[in-house]
């Protein structure tokens, strides 16, 4: 399947809004005017990232990048608990769950007729963070602003020769 980047980008944005606003009560806005590598202050914020492989009409993986502080706050709100009562495991599971929901929902919005197989989300390292965030032909990267913070979601596609 040839990627319709415009339609998929719109589906990804709608999915991010659906998931974060509906389930996590987090209003979001999209920052199309900045590049993702300008978006982050890695000296200031520790980032958590989760990756999910997918195949089907499109194959590749998605990654959610989220500052740890925001991940803790979202998890606490989601579970209806105080931040101090939230474990590291719960935060990581929440980040993985968000990645799963955004990806699955984006594909449903992109093409409701197509079946995409999603893997099981896993936490991923940030060794190549800047490179990962740079734009390329086979990626769609979305910068997301929340009221007091930011995050990013990216899909990378495998293009078969």
């Amino acid at each position: 399947m040839k990627i319709n980047k415009e339609v998929l980008t719109s589906a990804m944005k709608n999915s991010i809004s659906d998931v974060l606003e509906t389930m996590f009560f987090l209003p979001v806005d999209f920052n199309d005017s900045v590049s993702l590598d300008e978006f982050w202050d890695l000296d200031k914020d520790k980032i958590t990232a989760a990756r999910l492989n997918f195949d089907g009409p499109l194959s590749g993986y998605s990654i959610l990048y989220i500052p740890e502080k925001l991940a803790v706050s979202i998890t606490a709100d989601f579970m209806g608990k105080e931040e101090k009562g939230i474990s590291d495991k719960q935060v990581k599971e929440t980040v993985k769950e968000i990645t799963n929901m955004i990806t699955g929902n984006a594909f449903s919005l992109y093409d409701p007729e197509a079946v995409f197989n999603l893997g099981v989300p896993e936490l991923t390292g940030l060794d190549d963070f800047q490179k990962d965030l740079s734009d390329s032909e086979n990626k769609i990267s979305i910068a997301v602003s929340t009221l007091e913070n930011y995050l990013a979601f990216q899909m990378s596609f495998r293009i078969d020769d």
Partner: peptide, 24 residues
Amino acid sequence: TEGSKQRVEEFLDKGAMAYIKKPF
């Protein structure tokens, strides 16, 4: 999170009583 029509039909054909799509 899987909302494709084919997948939903598969759930129901195999005997699921209902499905609920995330996010809810």
